[in-house]
Design a protein around this nucleic acid. Structure first.
Length: 423
RNA sequence: GGAAAGAUGACCGAGUGGUUUAAGGUGCACGCCUGGAGAGCGUGUGUACGCCAAAAGCGUACCGCGGGUUCGAAUCCCGCUCUUUCCGCCA
């Protein structure tokens, strides 16, 4: 969330930027600033009275030490009356602070000045296309048909065990999945990201820290008995590793990567566009996360995009890079690039990565700061990206690399991992 | 799941109701000393919010978290969380 001091200082600029995000409740800004004004006024009052009370208590202690009981009793009465005033003020203060918090969590991040205008995905800007679309024979099979024919992914079996959207990978399909995980992790490690294996459930503090809570709790699986959420992305546990910490400037940037399964309820989505691996309740993903100084975060964003692009090139997949417009960006992001691969049999672009700079939006919630060279504590910037989301990569590999006799050619970079060249 | 012990600053560690304004030590920073280093000596050394044009300064809160008792709580009471050890169970 945005900080109050930032809102106070850059109010009109924030409002202009939020218009690019098509945020409709701009009146919340004035409301929260009014509450802030009131809060400061009441805090001053209550701090002053507390100071008086502390003085009196100290005097009482001294009076008792000197054996002046009578005077001490008098002071006690004086202090008691102050106590009532303080209680009232604190009650008001608490409710105002709560009201401020309730509003702040509703205000989305402001988009970076380079984010294009626009309301929906149609206004996104394709900034680059790369790779070559494959030239396939007539009537190529969509991945779910070819996968079934080769018996490498079983959707019905997964449906029996868990439900729709929980596929079972079998044989060479499972090996392909595992090979991709290892390939991506090795690449990320070579690019300077330290590997972590985080928990795949998180508590609500973590969900709040990265911005999934309170607004998107319906999209996460929840375990009520233990009050835990299944992670929708490794971004949540990995970024939260640094919640409530102050990092020395010399230790930045911090670069982490991690593989986890990801769980998404995705309520309300159905139909042809979610067939097969296109949209799942459980899928594997490698995530990259960076924590940087504010002045470095946009070069880090570029570096992460270049890295993700290098993976797509290595996999020889046709891809395009999309700069999201204001209206299509997520609540917490200041700037986001999506990476899509072309899946030939479906004739569809599938999103396989989303790389975002959150600036201080997450770090403010996380209380994630760094100590600058001149000993000041400032909010760090957080970024993350998929590198990559597995299922759709598998879908595209299956469809694009299929042969006329219904086999799948494994790209050269994966063969050392799979140990086979064809499925 | 059962039992016991514990949680204090960057770290170690003292502190069972009132000069605690959290002792002492370590570390760190700066200064003195030195040809240089070390030792020694001195000074400083958390976070958040607020007051102030700003700096300096001052105020408030914070000793795991949340309540309570009291004029006053690190200290007393209640609840919770986590850690360690032992027992049980177990991949």
């Amino acid at each position: 969330m945005l900080t109050l001091s930032y809102l106070r200082q850059y109010k009109s600029e924030v409002i202009e930027r939020l218009k690019i995000k098509h945020f409709s409740q701009l009146d919340l800004i004035d409301k929260v600033l009014e509450l802030d004004e009131k809060r400061r006024q009441i805090q001053k009052q209550s701090d002053d009275i507390k100071a008086q009370q502390n003085q009196i208590s100290k005097q009482i202690g001294q009076l008792f030490a000197q054996g002046k009981k009578q005077e001490a009793e008098q002071k006690k009465a004086e202090s008691a009356s102050l106590k009532n005033q303080i209680e009232d003020l604190i009650k008001t203060l608490d409710s105002i602070e709560q009201a401020i918090q309730d509003i702040l969590v509703l205000i989305p991040n402001t988009p970076h000045s380079s984010v294009p205008q626009g309301k929906t995905a149609e206004n996104n800007i394709i900034i680059k296309e790369g790779g070559k679309k494959p030239i396939l024979f007539p009537n190529p099979l969509p991945h779910w048909e070819l996968a079934k024919k080769l018996d490498i992914i079983d959707f019905e079996l997964g449906a029996k065990v868990a439900g729709a959207g929980f596929p079972v990978y079998k044989g060479k399909g499972a090996k392909l999945e595992r090979s991709l995980i290892n390939f991506f992790l090795d690449k990320a490690t070579a690019a300077g990201y330290q590997e972590v294996i985080p928990p795949i459930v998180v508590n609500k503090e973590s969900g709040f820290g990265t911005g999934q809570l309170p607004d998107k709790d319906g999209q996460m699986y929840y375990i009520p008995l233990d009050e835990l959420y299944l992670i929708p992305t490794a971004e949540v546990p990995i970024t939260n590793l640094y919640r409530d910490t102050i990092i020395e400037e010399r230790d930045l940037p911090i670069k982490n990567c991690g593989y986890t399964p990801c769980f998404r309820r995705e309520a309300g989505s159905y139909g042809a566009h979610v067939r097969g691996l296109n949209r799942l309740h459980q899928f594997d993903k490698i995530e990259i996360v960076q924590i940087t100084k504010p002045e470095d975060s946009y070069s880090a964003l570029q570096e992460m995009c270049d890295y993700v692009e290098s993976l797509l090139i290595a996999l020889e997949l046709p891809y395009r890079i999309v700069l999201l417009c204001g209206g299509d960006m997520s609540f917490a992001s200041a700037k986001t690039y999506d990476f899509e691969v072309y899946s030939a049999a479906q004739d569809k672009w599938l999103e396989v990565s989303s790389v975002s700079n959150f600036e201080t939006f997450q770090s403010n919630r996380l209380k994630l700061r760094y100590r600058s060279a001149d000993k000041k504590n400032e909010l760090a910037h957080t970024l993350n990206g998929s590198a990559l989301g597995m299922a759709r990569v598998v879908a595209a590999l299956i469809e694009n690399n299929q042969t006329e006799d219904a086999h799948i050619q494994i790209p050269a970079c994966l063969q050392p991992y799979t140990g086979f060249e064809i499925i």
